[in-house]
């Protein structure tokens, strides 16, 4: 563990908590892409199956459970409890165009052709594009509530911090994982446009 990865995990946790609070407090999921949230639940489910097979640390196991619980909790709030506030009309990104290529790519490019490793690779590829429906929705509505933009900023920062973690681990532990690094760079680059808007003029209330 290093400070970059710890800050990244905290930023990730913060993003998920901000989102849950936003939906719970405002009792509305307006402006939030349910499709992206479904993709995140798929990402964590596919990636954290090793909860049952390999123990890394208490921190690792607890965080995996928290991320799984929070992502399914968000889906419950969006599609069941506050389903009336879900903005179907603007959440239209075709997620099958994200899932299928990730499935194919994970079968072609992976570290080991085993079920758990393929699922992990699929989750890495899918996570890198999982935010697209949300970014697409924000661009369609032309704005985002300030709380939603803070959510996106924290979520985008998490993987940017992980890139610093990978640089650190390469030099300090000569450990690197090309698949995670390339996907993490793609994921962070997708936020660049949003980061620019968030930092220059706070995209809410445009």
């Amino acid at each position: 563990m290093n400070v970059f990865r710890l800050l990244g995990d905290i930023s990730h946790l913060l993003a998920i908590i901000i989102l849950l609070l936003k939906i719970w407090k405002t009792r509305s999921c307006a402006g939030i892409s349910g499709r992206s949230q479904v993709l995140f639940a798929v990402v964590y489910t596919a990636r954290y199956l090793d909860l049952f097979t390999s123990y890394i640390s208490a921190y690792n196991s607890i965080m995996k459970l928290v991320f799984l619980a929070a992502s399914y909790g968000t889906i419950y709030l969006m599609f069941i409890k506050f389903k009336a506030s879900y903005d179907h009309n603007h959440d239209t990104f075709r997620i099958e165009f994200l899932i299928l290529p990730c499935v194919l790519l994970s079968l072609l490019i992976n570290h080991e052709f085993s079920p758990l490793e393929i699922l992990w690779t699929f989750s890495i590829y899918l996570e890198s594009v999982a935010i697209l429906p949300q970014l697409f929705m924000v661009s369609k509505t032309g704005e985002a509530e300030s709380i939603t933009s803070h959510y996106l900023f924290a979520l985008g920062s998490y993987r940017a911090l992980y890139i610093l973690n990978w640089i650190y681990r390469y030099y300090a532990e000569s450990h690197y994982d090309v698949i995670a690094i390339v996907a993490g760079i793609v994921q962070t680059v997708l936020y660049c446009d949003f980061f620019y808007l968030y930092i220059t003029k706070g995209i809410y209330g445009q």
Binding site: D9, D50, I56, M63, K64, H111, E117, H175, D177
Partner: peptide, 10 residues
Amino acid sequence: DPDQGLHDEL
């Protein structure tokens, strides 16, 4: 190549 199989990151 790094020691695969064990992904210690979230």
